[in-house]
Write a protein that binds this DNA or RNA. Sequence first.
DNA 1: TATAGAATTGACGTAAACGTAAGGGTGCAG
DNA 2: CTGCACCCTTACGTTTACGTCAATTCTATA
Lengths: 153, 153
Amino acid sequence: MKLVSPGEAAANTNDMSDKAGEDLVRIGEMAKKYGVTLRTLRFYEDKGLLNPQRDGSTRLYTRRDKARLKLILLGRKVGFSLRDVKQMMDLYDPSGSNTKQLRLTLDKSEKQLARLQKQRALIDDAINELSNSMAAVRQMLSERSAPQASVAG
Amino acid sequence: MKLVSPGEAAANTNDMSDKAGEDLVRIGEMAKKYGVTLRTLRFYEDKGLLNPQRDGSTRLYTRRDKARLKLILLGRKVGFSLRDVKQMMDLYDPSGSNTKQLRLTLDKSEKQLARLQKQRALIDDAINELSNSMAAVRQMLSERSAPQASVAG
DNA sequence: TATAGAATTGACGTAAACGTAAGGGTGCAG
DNA sequence: CTGCACCCTTACGTTTACGTCAATTCTATA
């Protein structure tokens, strides 16, 4: 039940093999396409975030997996843990209004937003402190010869 | 050679015991004073960042240790690793101009400042993305009943 | 003297998201 | 048949800054 051979993988962008336009890709192509490593994809699967089909032992990623991976990467970008991402995705039900999922997502997002804002404040603080220290150090360097009220003991 | 007993520790702010105003404190008081745990102080010592005297096996922190701890905490605040902090402090020489130390410190600080600014940019990015996503989710929630172009598969 | 409070060393545990190496299989181009 | 190019699983390693026991000792105070 071979679907995509390595040699023709490149030319195989829209091969209709089994069903209609299922567009299955193996791990290598998937990784390249989304800028992650094979290890990462396997890791996400191990953590229950992805669930590719198999052709024997070979993973075949569907368009659904791609959508999920996009979400994972978005979640990662905004600072969610994989655990959070999983919680949110696990609530998805294709046959419902997904109100619960959306509410959970919104709730987590609000908290995450707060965390990000706090982080930004801390970083701004750090930048200010560091800038001050740097000014002081520059001072001391420019006065090297004068009495040292130096920096450490 | 008892210097500071636990009971009188509080009233003992400027006890002149051995030398003049040496102001030695034990680990408990040191920790309280700087808002760190005992474990942290011992850890810093283990890593060569602090070097308190000993009365038998009991650590006695001098004013020098306090100065160093302040620096460590400042370094930590601005995002330096303890390894970096140590490198900078290790270059301190009480009998010199400390030009090398200051230069290293400045160099590391510039790099750290760059890292902080990059981080801030990433966080700002994340905040924007997250805000957008939240708006979308709110949209979908407000339209719950309309066709779902929902969030996950 | 009994007890509570402070200190000591030693050493395993934790978190997060993978990295990396080992050992092995499949299939096709040459 | 060889050699790649891919793919697989298992499982230990990495990073940083401590947390959390555990078992023991010291000492001041009631």
